[in-house]
Write a protein that binds this DNA or RNA. Sequence first.
DNA 1: GGTGTTTGGATAGTGGCACTTACCAAGGAG
DNA 2: CTCCTTGGTAAGTGCCACTATCCAAACACC
Lengths: 214, 214
Amino acid sequence: MRLAQLSERSGVSAATIKYYLREGLLPPGRQVNATTAEYDEEHLRRLRLVRAMIQVGRIPVATVREVLGHVDDDSLGRTIRVGAALWALPQLPEPDEDDEYVRAAHREADALLDALGWENAKQLTTISPAYRRLVVALAAFRRLGYDWDAELLLPRAKLMYQAAVADLDFLETHPSEEEKVEAAVASAVLVEPMLQALHRLAQEEETARRYGFG
Amino acid sequence: MRLAQLSERSGVSAATIKYYLREGLLPPGRQVNATTAEYDEEHLRRLRLVRAMIQVGRIPVATVREVLGHVDDDSLGRTIRVGAALWALPQLPEPDEDDEYVRAAHREADALLDALGWENAKQLTTISPAYRRLVVALAAFRRLGYDWDAELLLPRAKLMYQAAVADLDFLETHPSEEEKVEAAVASAVLVEPMLQALHRLAQEEETARRYGFG
DNA sequence: GGTGTTTGGATAGTGGCACTTACCAAGGAG
DNA sequence: CTCCTTGGTAAGTGCCACTATCCAAACACC
């Protein structure tokens, strides 16, 4: 398959594919001669993953490169590769540890993990991007005057735990070891927008049930 | 309160506040004379909401302006204002209706709403941004070769419905009618990153439980 | 074997966005 | 009267995801 065909089958413009090649999001094709390179189904698959990450997951190009670097790192075991890849995903502004709202949010988040008995997550609080994200969101709520204490957080955390269990079950049903790392990344990137969409749809449904359309 | 104090109390630079004023994200202060304007607690509150939307919710400035326009539209009833405000929030690229994956995703999404009995949401499929977002995510999954059928979607949708019910319950406990619209927006903007963070934390916890840290 | 098209790669440019800097005239403080 | 502060405006910055333009080396066809 040539670049033009790759473009046609993926719906991504040739110029953009060249850009991705340049940026290292897509491995180079098999060079046939000075002016021709050959691409295969694996390239198409990777290109679709890249597009999904960028367009649906809204992940910056630099981050995509980093994540895929972990996916392709054969020197690591599967679990670590998945972890490293997912770890690289988010990057919110660091919470300002001097801010009183941030400190309160930290206490709230720690209390939540205790109440849930998430011993493993508890060990990751200093480094997990997800933990920091939670703290940032909680601090923002507090600044606006809403107290999101354990009573509100616990049931939601339990719901998300059920979702996470379902996600990992899904990954375990999946075929090749090879594909599992990629599947994990695809899940992380696409499941979240999907859950968000379901959440909004559910809100729309429930709002209409309670108050009607008027 | 002068602009400088508003800046200090919110932690937002004076230049940025001026920018927000120019962009209409913040109502102008009470003009004292040609070179002095007076701001109050309401301005501070609004500024914090704007920051939360932009920094935590990652909502573009233009969208924030549109959303706040609905929040402040006194000519509408509360439910409609909330709806209009939330409606304005997302803007993913439109799904390409000619794409076979998109059409398949439409069928899957419709089947899901039927299975859930979400009659109200069903009526909104042609216009709801959340529905389109779901379709885009499903289509991306299909393109990558993962079949997210009703069996996988249903339990997740039910989880998100529970979350949505909890959200609306929370809003109902809230004080003034005035604040409810703002609270609804704050919830939509901040609850979603929070749920996402909880989801990732839950995944980290469960991954560690199943496979350990190694 | 010449001619026109297609190929992939490099370089530079584009448009959008969220600020930020530089500047300004008007007020107030000492 | 001088000097600093104020809020407002216009232009600039840095980043990012592309995108347009060239280019020379290969085919493709006559």
